[in-house]
Design a binder for these strands. Structure first.
Lengths: 247, 247
DNA sequence: AAGTGGTCTAGACCACGAT
DNA sequence: TCGTGGTCTAGACCACTTC
């Protein structure tokens, strides 16, 4: 009882550091402001740079900071709310400029996607790559898988791979009368190709949204979208987007 | 053209290591099997332990591995699908043993929650703490916030804080006719209290699900649930849960 | 060229679980 | 008590952006 510290569990330095930095961000820094560099911060707090980096990593994971190699560490704006469950079928809103078709080819889907599509492994399916942009920033990279026999007009497409072909496939998809949709969200890390589209390093944390579209009892298509976990808050539900976040 | 490596971008060691380990996990290890310890793995691959750990961290983030201090590193089972959007109101399924009431008190909600509840900051609201268990494992810790004036019978509750009180509050909530719900999902890191409930270390990655329940144009309650990101895949939608995952 | 964050090393010690 | 993963250090070099 002599000291107040004796019975406390030793808190890791990086954890304490994270708390201190977090409070400093709230009170002393404006959004977009750039922090002192890592070497100076580490010296200022009297820790090794690796320890300081552990704290920064956590804060970046929580969307409080943004770090860019060669540039510096800046205070991130609050995460933007991104609707992923609102529209009945995300490819139907042709007037929504959010999704940019990038490319399209025929290819073998990953084994897990083949199972969801209910086609034998190794089957060639149409793939469409799209990028979702918001506030001038790429926030998601999506790969859409469509077996040729799920949409009538799909076999007739002979446009060479590229953005025009992607638009053609999406046009055919809009003819389908969908009846249902299932979605799942999980944590993942960006593969090299997705990372490039998202303007992040490979391995960056992403929220992987897998959507299965069904019509007439069949699986029509499967979409695997990877959202930047640092900048996005995914919103579901019929009402307007949830405006604020907790913790 | 003399060598095939000349023009390739140098891939970080930990990234390559992660790929190698990932393939080894697929082919040479069974679920639950325990891996050699970190010092031996590092030696075997000829890298420093810190580098090896960077690869293991990634694999743990993707749900492929489970690491426990004092025990070792084991191969994790596939993530379990957890329904978070199916039931109209998650507190209505009284017969569902998934959620275990833990505690209940009156307290000030965090500022962000107060905004969602549309009450002035500093207002006392009822809080209910619950734990969600699946397959004998804790997967989520939830904090439910209910302003006293949103449910008629709530002011009459005078049970002392504890699990019985939590059950009493939930009982009152079930009387309310809900009209809507909004949800959002984002990445976070477990606070110390949540981490304890989830049997993880503080800072562990979690999926934070914020739900706003509305009735008669008002916000009735707000729930903030933190799900273990390593073991859970959150499922939304009316159909049966999406069975498989991609990437 | 200078400055930033990203990767990597080779150690050390600590907290925890099993024995 | 021993073995495990978790934390921490003090350096080094690399990749990238900016000037």
């Amino acid at each position: 009882m002599g000291t107040t510290q004796l019975e406390t569990v030793p808190e890791p330095k990086y954890w304490h550091l994270k708390t201190v930095l977090s409070e400093a961000l709230d009170s002393e820094f404006a959004i977009g402001e750039i922090l002192p560099n890592e070497r100076e911060l580490a010296a200022r707090f009297g820790v090794a740079r690796a320890t300081l980096r552990q704290a920064l990593e956590q804060l970046e994971l929580e969307g409080r900071l943004q770090r860019r190699r060669g540039v510096g560490t800046t205070v991130a704006p609050p995460r933007m709310g991104v609707a992923v469950g609102d529209r009945a079928h995300s490819w139907e809103d042709a007037d929504d400029a959010a999704w940019q078709p990038v490319d399209s080819t025929e290819a073998e889907p990953p084994a897990a996607v083949a199972r969801l599509l209910d086609v034998p492994p190794g089957t060639l399916v149409h793939t469409v790559r799209r990028t979702r942009v918001s506030h001038g920033q790429p926030i998601a990279a999506e790969l859409l898988y469509v077996p040729s026999d799920s949409v009538a007009g799909l076999t007739a497409i002979d446009t060479p791979p590229g953005a025009p072909r992607a638009r053609a496939v999406l046009r055919e998809l809009r003819r389908v009368a969908l009846e249902g949709r299932e979605q799942s969200v999980e944590l993942g890390s960006a593969r090299a190709d997705d990372a490039k589209q998202l303007d992040r390093l490979p391995g960056a944390p992403v929220l992987v949204v897998t959507t299965r579209y069904t019509a007439a009892g069949h699986t029509v298509a499967v979409a695997v979208a990877t959202y930047r976990a640092d900048t996005c808050r995914l919103t579901f539900g019929d009402g307007p987007a949830v405006e604020l976040l907790a913790s």
